[in-house]
Amino acid sequence: MIRESMIMKIHYATALGSVALVVIHVLFRLTQNFHDSLKFDNVITNYSLLPYSILLELILILISIHGFNGLRVILLELNQGQKYETIITYGCLASMIALITYGSRTILMTSMGMI
């Protein structure tokens, strides 16, 4: 079993990593006019930039790990019991993987122009 200190170090590392990335992501909304930045063609253009897609993928992975581990922490503190804790641990892990998979599919297909 992975040690709790390792999980929490990952929690902090993913938090720190996302700070910089999210700032860049939000700035992308502000470099252009906010409303224009969301126009379909502009978004597609953004996606065709490889660094932008990589940025999105990194944000997706980091924040999914951080967010679902945060949820796990809250739920483990809310209630205890072997069965409950196993469900929470694997439930959060599964949700995290599902979200990363779902988001990656969008990023990958869009950046490869498969729309």
Binding site: G67, L99, Y102, T106
Partner: peptide, 16 residues
């Protein structure tokens, strides 16, 4: 933020 994040991924996936 977690709730928004999930919704945000769903919302933007409509680009597909």
């Amino acid at each position: 933020l977690l709730v928004y994040f999930i919704m945000h991924i769903y919302e933007t996936s409509s680009i597909l």
